[in-house]
């Protein structure tokens, strides 16, 4: 019986030691988890920050697109800053301190609402005889602009002339010149022969 308390004490001590060691292990593992979770949190934060930075960069850079894609994705791109490049066509229409410039990128055409000083950078507009300046413009796209009665337009900030316009010289094919002359001559002969006959018959 005397040995019982001692045995119990040893068992309790052992149990205590084991529990301590388990706790220590648990504590150790717990620390590792904390350390792991801390490092994971750091990674997530880094990723988020990187994503945010990328988004900010993208926003800063604006979305590069074509005019048809603007119309096709008008709801998604409404109010966003976009970059388009197209040929200035027709002519500039000044409205006070601002101007309307129409650009066509081959997929479609859209109106740019830009400051007159920016519009003045464009000197050549596309017509039958001219290839207009290729304009690189970054601006806010509006699907249904409330300032302009619901029109889909682009409020431009900066205009860069990517390529200058030029005069397109007409080339008349030799065959066309010859056939015009031949047909015109034939036409005159036919008219000279037929018209008196018709007039004579009508008179009869």
């Amino acid at each position: 019986m005397r040995k019982l308390p001692g045995t119990l004490m040893i068992i309790l001590l052992a149990a205590f030691t084991i529990s301590l060691s388990v706790n220590a292990e648990q504590a150790a593992s717990g620390n590792t988890d904390v350390e792991n979770s801390e490092s994971e949190n750091d990674d997530a934060e880094k990723t988020e920050k990187a994503e945010e930075a990328e988004e900010a960069k993208e926003a800063k850079e604006a979305i590069r697109t074509d005019i048809n894609a603007l119309i096709e994705n008008a709801k998604e791109l409404d109010g966003k800053e976009v970059t388009v490049q197209g040929e200035a066509i027709g002519e500039r229409m000044d409205r006070g301190d601002y101007s309307w410039v129409n650009i066509n990128d081959g997929t479609n055409a859209i109106g740019l609402w830009i400051e007159k000083s920016e519009a003045e950078k464009i000197t050549c507009y596309g017509t039958y005889k001219f290839k207009g300046d290729m304009v690189h413009v970054t601006g806010i796209f509006y699907r249904a602009c409330s300032e302009h009665g619901g029109e889909a337009d682009l409020h431009g900030g900066s205009v860069v002339i990517a390529e200058e316009g030029y005069y397109v010289a007409e080339k008349i094919p030799f065959l066309k010149k010859i056939s015009t002359a031949a047909l015109a001559a034939c036409g005159l002969v036919i008219a000279a022969v037929c018209l008196p006959v018709i007039r004579k018959r009508i008179d009869r």
């Binding site: 066509i89 027709g90 229409m93 309307w100 129409n102 066509n104 479609n108 055409a109 859209i110 109106g111 609402w113 302009h148 029109e151 337009d153």
Partner: peptide
């Protein structure tokens, strides 16, 4: 023009 009546804004 391509933009039809929208050309005139």
């Amino acid at each position: 023009n391509t933009q039809n009546i929208m050309y005139y804004h």
